[in-house]
Write a protein that binds this DNA or RNA. Structure first.
Lengths: 346, 346
DNA sequence: CCCTGTTCCGAAAGCGCTTTCGGTCTAATA
DNA sequence: TATTAGACCGAAAGCGCTTTCGGAACAGGG
């Protein structure tokens, strides 16, 4: 349509150099059959004339678009505050090193999540995907696997052995949480977790149970599962206080739950960390500033995007997916919401 | 290179229909010179065969890529927790309605911000940009303006009359803040703001001053400017306490500053909201959970991305940019960090 | 019955690159 | 000096679409 005033074309550059566009192309792309002298001449002239190749043309000719799709899960912003930006920033930066970009999109109301993936793939807008917020049985992953579409996921699913992923060690993190609490002397530890379709919820709960047996604690602790929200935490702690009064500590699968627990505790005139220990997960920004500051498990956030990106480009070259699965330790941050149980609990 | 197993091509579809690819293309794109009957036949068959056009080919042929660039400012994650995801989510959703995608990237260490914009434009990867985190004198905006590249910005700059933007009413917000505090009886109000190269900082400070004169307050209030960090807030409040002991309220241009002020206050055995009123800005997620909950100014976040996207597509059709400038009110959230000054201040 | 005007579709020229295939020219080998 | 092998570049065929142009077929008007 409109001739955008956007620089010079390969053919024009070639004409200027009195060469063929084919030759110039090969010169620029480092083909070995171009004389060193002419290659240099081409490169210099290209820079002088501000030549940059049209991405569309290049893509059409080569069939690779150097773009990775990332479709935001619905309401991803409500989940873990700044995590996604950090992730995106890390991934974008890593991808930029190999001149790849991220195609960001969301799912519209009238279409399903896999439809978005299918559309992006079928229109050849992307070479593959990064998928986030995985579920145990994840239809996106199943779709990608079935169609042989390259991807790496942040987080695992039930069939995690089949594809590349990066994940925090949710299970170990929860075991460490129990270690911490058990060593302080806690015996009755409640657990407030997320809905179990998210795979990380499953893993965290597994870690919780593993920790229990490791420390010979009663395996029948109060366990709740629901939305990872402040409201649900509030609701759970009320139930705990009324029905399980000997509970001396509660582990929350997410800091927001802990915030709700705090509220319930204060409302019952109980002091988190003194009367009842509270442990969170994720280290959201609020956690450092609540009173008392919340002890929590902090998965590494910024690097995770970069690692996923790195795994993706490796994935395009490697066939051995076993080498493309990375698990990362979760750091325990001790603040002031965990302490030995009060005397009457011992 | 590799024939990706990714659907059928226009020519193949045409062959199947015993038509020319040109005809099929026009049928699919609603040209008026195609018989209704054949058009329908084409559409049905296309659906049956799962035809979807190659984005690269389409882009090359039409010259429009239906992609909007958004380059993340460096360390954008550290600034205002979940804002960017909400923004991105809103923008992506709005863009998806017109079948546009967002190209997300960052600036590499070895290149400047405008270089990224230039590269994205020159390689025709995008039709335009959304720019965020504007400065008063913003080289990105200047560059885009000079080169006639379509864009809309979130936030303004000094030359804001020349281009489309969406912005919160920073100035009015601060005037309202003073209204609130002055009505409570405060006379000595300190201001902790950001570095003045960010345009919103300038506007907020302007609002602060406007509020002062409106209420006939001494225009020489303690004013600080620096990074919008907890640490800087902490540092400022200490200085205020020692050098301006009659200060009864402090307005922070960002909630994180307020968090630092809280820390300094507690350390001096002062209670925010009782001994000294504290007012924040942005309503970051921590603000509702600190003790006491922080009163703050809450700009609308989720919609802003969508509006920027909407403005962008309007921008492509409209020449009258005056119609493409939107200002949004900022909501005051009263929590418990503001109260009348203690008696000894009156 | 001829002429004009529509309606509808085919042909073909791009869009701006990549990449294979030859062909020419020079330099090395015998 | 005749022969062969590289080295280097031009020619041209795509990649998968869009869009202009023209022509065939058919209708209606006189």
């Amino acid at each position: 349509m409109s001739k955008k005033s956007t620089g010079i074309t390969l053919a024009e550059l070639a004409a200027d150099l009195k060469l063929t566009s084919g030759t110039v192309s090969r010169a620029l792309n480092g083909y070995p059959d171009i004389a060193k002298a002419t290659r240099e001449k081409v490169i210099i002239r290209a820079a002088q004339l501000n030549y940059s190749p049209s991405a569309s043309a290049k893509r059409l000719a080569t069939g690779v678009v150097n773009t990775i799709g990332l479709v935001l899960p619905h309401m991803s912003s409500t989940i873990t505050d700044s995590f996604f930006v950090k992730f995106l920033e890390g991934a974008a930066t890593e991808f930029a090193k190999t001149d790849r970009d991220i195609l960001l999109t969301t799912v519209q109301n009238n279409e399903s999540e896999v439809e978005v993936y299918r559309r992006l793939w079928r229109t050849r807008k992307v070479d593959g995907f990064i998928v986030v917020r995985t579920r145990s049985d994840d239809e996106r992953i199943n779709f990608l696997l079935e169609n042989n579409i390259p991807f790496v996921s942040h987080g695992r699913s039930d069939n995690a052995q089949q594809y590349p992923w990066y994940d925090a060690d949710n299970q170990q993190a929860m075991e460490n949480a129990i270690d911490h609490l058990a060593n302080l002397g806690h015996k009755n530890i409640a657990y407030i977790g997320g809905a179990n379709d998210y795979h990380f919820s499953k893993l965290r709960l597994a870690g919780f149970n593993a920790g229990l047996t490791k420390h010979n604690l009663d395996p029948n602790q109060p366990i709740f599962s629901g939305p990872l929200s402040e409201a649900f935490g509030y609701q759970c702690i009320q139930q705990i206080l009324s029905e399980q009064p000997n509970t001396s500590a509660v582990i929350c699968a997410q800091d927001k739950l802990a915030l709700g627990v705090y509220r319930g505790l204060y409302q019952a005139n109980l002091q988190p960390g003194r009367d009842i220990s509270v442990l969170g997960y994720d280290d959201i920004s609020a956690s450092a500033y609540v009173n008392p500051p919340l002890s929590t498990m902090a998965p590494e956030q910024h690097l995770s995007g970069a690692i996923c990106a790195e795994l993706f480009v490796l994935h395009l070259k490697t066939t051995d997916i076993a080498e493309l699965q990375r698990i990362a330790p979760v750091r325990f941050i001790k603040r002031h919401s965990t302490a030995p149980p009060p005397n009457h609990f011992r």
